[in-house]
Design a binder for these strands. Structure first.
Lengths: 350, 350
DNA sequence: CAAGTCGATTGGATCGATCAAATGCCGAGA
DNA sequence: TCTCGGCATTTGATCGATCCAATCGACTTG
């Protein structure tokens, strides 16, 4: 075998036409079974692979999806994006698509780059992550005609015109809070991020809802929300837990595992027996939380990735002549993973 | 603007030939400055992007590099691969290349997939990570004619025929050990992984070399190496640190930050004043280590990625007619980041 | 002044697939 | 017997760029 086999070379060595082989690969049902088998055998034997470039040039589809990756600012929460990325690649691969990575220094460079790749035909569409308030990317991509699906809801008030999948963070913290209430806790703090981030506010809202429904006193609730002025992190978690204890909290729901790890550090270090019994629930179910025995809310990341890919590829394969497709927008329920740190409130304490 | 502009449409609207525009983009120096400027202006105005597919079809180059990603088994150490991945994308982008991700269930499926993508012309070459003993991938890729560069040395005895870049782990643990020796410690333990993994053995060797050179007694050395039978992890670190303390160690060098985090957990939890003064140095300088104030050995990940990309792209752009290129193989020096946990040995202790 | 040199530009062929339309083939129905 | 419809297969055109060789004009040179 000297040269790489092509449709043409295969065809002449088999005594059929190029198109027949092409049909075997793309429309197997219209080819007679006997010739189909003969062609398939020869394809396998010769190790023939259709040229991605030629196919893409003619069919105007690259079978590639673009995604911007960001440096993980926090190694702990990075693991969620990591799992998402992996699931994305896997689902895409199952549907004969591949993932192309890009970096960008901001939202506007990101859409510019995605748009450039799209007009160059290098990608068919892209996946958006880390959506936030006043996110200009959906509008920019729509204007550029780049098909996309977002992982993360648009945090704007007005409904969006694009498809997105997100995790119901409020449901997660609600479940976590209800779980702690069920263990007898009443003064349950929420350790979160500064107001203004959609994700953080959502998670805080879940805690507040569960607390309100349980009929805790206004006083108990007031003891609760502790929002860091600084970034998410382990050190911040320790500080916040300290404040929460002083305010009388016997348990804490955290907006992230980083905060929860920090909180548990304080609880491990303390000599005060009562403080040491404080319950903590984290968010994201990272390996660190698992190792430390922290309960945590697990996001169905793989399921989210799968839905995102399906939505995007469905949109890509739908002929454009059809009416504007109705956007699909869905929230997935996270799941609480209980571990040792779910401490029951000791009834002998005040 | 109705249709996407092409070379042809641009050419006729400018009154020049396709080739001239092509030259402006690919060989600007051979085009007269005045026409070049005129063409460039029109390109910008029309938003023209050359079709990646057409270019790739003709030039037989896709400007894409393949990379297999694995699910992060450990969220902590995953951050190193994460940083590497990010640096890789960034460097590749700077040289007008993009990164394509694949998943695979093993080494053999990985090379099969990379080979398939390469013969399809979807990728020009690939980057190999997580090299290990008896790694069959270099040979398989070489046989398939897929250009590649490895991040991670081949752990075989015989020299390899391919280019690779790696981090000198032994130098890292050597530096860490010498640092602790300089602080007055003599009984320094090594908390590592079971023998047999190239990376782990390398890091252990660095500790052993530094200990041997410092003239510590055989007895001190014997107290040292604690290799986990199980996987790398936080819990294992705590156990190993406990054993090391009982054996009389006053400091520990760890093969990973996971182990170091585990070790520091024990030291924070203890009531024994002497144990609480034990020094710990981790490996990888992950955000968690930084947050906990652990000293750690930082790998020059970005530099490694940059060199890997450069080597690969240089190889891809070198005409094949040349003689077989000499493989470049290099070790990069890691750097110790000292933090609070570098405790000086208290001279009053035994 | 004709021949030769060199730089800038051009036209035709080509990469390897898919699309759209045409062809050949076969059996059913008038 | 002839026509028609449907299926399997083939043929020619096309996607949008690059490669290669040819062309053209201006400028040097013997």
């Amino acid at each position: 075998m000297g040269q790489k086999p092509t449709l043409q070379s295969l065809a002449s060595s088999l005594g059929v036409s190029r198109q027949t082989i092409s049909n075997v690969l793309n429309n197997p049902q219209i080819v007679q079974a006997s010739t189909r088998d003969r062609v398939l055998a020869e394809i396998r034997a010769s190790g023939y692979r259709p040229s991605a470039a030629a196919r893409s040039l003619r069919s105007r589809r690259s079978q590639v999806i673009g995604l911007r990756i960001r440096p993980a600012v926090d190694g702990i929460n990075g693991s969620v994006m990591d799992a998402f990325l992996h699931a994305l690649v896997e689902c895409a691969q199952r549907r004969d698509h591949r993932l192309l990575l890009i970096t960008a220094s901001g939202d506007e460079p990101e859409t510019t780059e995605q748009g450039a790749l799209h007009t160059a035909g290098a990608i068919d569409g892209c996946v958006l992550t880390d959506t936030h308030l006043d996110d200009t990317r959906p509008a920019a991509l729509a204007a550029a005609g780049v098909p996309f699906v977002a992982f993360g809801r648009p945090w704007q008030d007005r409904p969006a015109a694009h498809s997105w999948i997100d995790i119901d963070g409020a449901a997660g913290t609600r479940t976590a809070t209800e779980h702690l209430l069920g263990l007898g806790h009443r003064r349950i703090a929420f350790l979160g991020w500064p107001a203004g981030s959609g994700v953080g506010d959502d998670r805080r809202a879940g805690w507040r809802q569960a607390m309100a429904q349980s009929g805790v006193t206004a006083e108990d609730l007031a003891a609760g929300a502790l929002d860091q002025r600084t970034a998410d992190g382990v050190v911040e978690g320790t500080q916040a837990m300290d404040w929460a204890r002083r305010a009388g909290a016997t348990a804490a729901v955290c907006a992230s595992d980083s905060l929860a790890v920090g909180a548990s550090t304080l609880l491990r270090r303390t000599t005060d027996a009562e403080t040491a019994r404080t319950a903590v629930v984290g968010f994201d179910d990272t390996p660190v939380a698992a190792a430390l025995g922290l309960s945590s809310v697990r996001q169905p990341v793989a399921a989210a990735a799968s839905r995102v890919v399906d939505l995007l590829i469905d949109r890509l394969t739908t002929p454009e002549t059809d009416a504007r497709p109705v956007p699909v927008q869905d929230l997935l329920e996270p799941e609480l993973i209980p571990r040792q740190f779910d401490r029951r409130l000791d009834p002998t304490s005040p």
